[in-house]
Simulated assay, not measured.
Amino acid sequence: MELPLVVGVDGSEFSLQALDWAVDEAALHGLPLHLVHASRWERYEGGRPSLGTDRPTKEELAGHITASSAERARLRNPEVRVSSEVLPDDAVTALLSAGREAFALVTGSRGRSELAGMLLGSVSLSMAGRATCPVIVVRGAGLNQRGTFHRIVLGVGDTTEGSAAVRFAFREAEVRGCPLFAVRAWRRPAHEHVDHPLIADDAVQVHEDQASAVLTDALNQAVRDHSRTVWHREVIEGPAHKVLLNKSADADLLVVGALRQHGHSGLQLGRVIHALLHHSDCPVAVIPQRA
C-alpha cells in the first residue's frame, strides 16, 4: 500500500507555503498528495443535506479552500496525484487521524486563526508532539529559495542508533541527490572543573571522542544501506539547540528524532526540538522513534 503525503490546508499564507513544499516533496518521492481541511460545519448540519438551496457559509469556505489548494498543487506539478477531503473536526483531530496512514504530515508554522505574534501555531506544535508518523513543519526564511542550499542536516541525539530519524534523513538526501550533514553537539558538564591545562585538554578530548562515538554508532547501518549518498559528520561543541539552529541557516531540511513517551501517546519533544520548531531557518522534520 502506497501511503500518501498529507498536508493540512486552511487558506493562510503559511498553509500555501506548506502546500507548495509538500507538492515538491511528493514529486521527489513519487507519492500521492492528500490535502486535508478541517471544518466543523457538518456537525451543525447533523450530517443531513440541507433542504434549502443555499449552502452554509462554512461549507462554502471549506469547499473553496480545498478546491483552490488542489488546483494550486496541480499547477505546481501536474504529475503529482492530488486528492482532498474536508473532515468535520478540529484541525488537530483531523490531521492526527489522517496521519495514521501517511508517509508524513506536512503543516505550516501557523494557521489563519493563530495570533500574529506567535512563533509557532498550536496546531503545528500538537502535530509534532502527537502524530504517529513523521511531521514536517514548513517554516524558515529560505522558503523562497527552496532547494538552493542542496543539503540536509540531521541532528543526532543520544539514542539514534539505527533510528527512524537517521533513515528518514538519508532517504531525503538520496531522493534529492544532495549531501547529508550529520551533526552531534556536545558540552563539557558544568560541574566538571579542571584547573590544570593539560588535564583540561584531555577532558575536552574525552567528551569530543564520546560524541564522535555516538555519531558513528548512529550512522553505521544507514551508511551501509545508502552507499551512494554523500554524507559528512560534524562533532561540534555547544548547546544542541544553538548548534542546530546555526546549521538550519543554510539547509533545505533539518531532521530530528523524538522519543515516544512510555505509557503515553505523545512524544518527548524537549527543549531542543521546541527551539527548532520556533526558530529554525528551514523546514523541520520531527520523526517519532522508540528508545
Score class of each variant (00 low, 15 high):
2 E>N: 12
3 L>N: 04
4 P>K: 12
6 V>E: 03
8 G>C: 08
10 D>V: 05
10 D>R: 01
11 G>P: 02
17 Q>P: 04
19 L>M: 04
20 D>M: 14
20 D>K: 11
28 L>N: 13
31 L>R: 13
31 L>H: 01
32 P>H: 09
36 V>T: 11
37 H>V: 08
39 S>A: 05
39 S>D: 01
42 E>V: 13
51 L>K: 08
51 L>Q: 13
53 T>A: 15
57 T>E: 15
59 E>H: 04
61 L>A: 11
68 S>Q: 14
68 S>V: 09
68 S>I: 04
70 A>F: 02
71 E>M: 09
74 R>N: 05
75 L>F: 14
75 L>V: 13
77 N>K: 11
77 N>P: 07
79 E>G: 10
80 V>I: 08
80 V>T: 01
81 R>P: 10
82 V>H: 09
86 V>Y: 05
86 V>I: 14
91 A>M: 06
96 L>K: 01
97 S>C: 09
107 T>F: 05
114 E>P: 05
120 L>T: 00
121 G>N: 03
123 V>E: 07
124 S>I: 04
124 S>G: 08
125 L>Y: 10
126 S>L: 02
129 G>L: 04
130 R>G: 07
130 R>S: 13
131 A>Q: 11
137 V>I: 04
140 G>E: 06
141 A>R: 14
143 L>E: 01
151 R>P: 03
159 T>L: 12
160 T>W: 08
162 G>N: 06
165 A>R: 03
165 A>W: 11
165 A>S: 15
169 A>V: 06
170 F>G: 09
174 E>P: 03
174 E>Q: 13
175 V>Q: 03
176 R>H: 04
177 G>D: 06
178 C>N: 15
180 L>I: 00
182 A>E: 01
186 W>T: 08
188 R>M: 12
192 E>W: 09
194 V>F: 03
196 H>I: 03
198 L>A: 14
199 I>P: 09
205 Q>D: 10
205 Q>M: 14
207 H>R: 15
210 Q>N: 10
212 S>G: 12
213 A>S: 14
215 L>M: 05
217 D>M: 11
221 Q>Y: 09
222 A>M: 02
228 R>Y: 08
228 R>I: 07
236 I>N: 09
242 K>L: 14
242 K>P: 05
246 N>D: 14
249 A>G: 07
250 D>Q: 10
251 A>V: 03
254 L>C: 02
256 V>T: 08
258 A>G: 14
261 Q>S: 09
261 Q>M: 11
263 G>W: 07
264 H>L: 15
264 H>A: 12
268 Q>K: 13
268 Q>Y: 13
270 G>Q: 00
270 G>N: 03
270 G>M: 00
271 R>N: 13
274 H>I: 01
274 H>G: 07
274 H>M: 10
277 L>W: 02
278 H>I: 05
280 S>G: 04
281 D>A: 12
284 V>E: 02
285 A>N: 01
286 V>P: 12
287 I>S: 04
288 P>G: 10
289 Q>R: 07
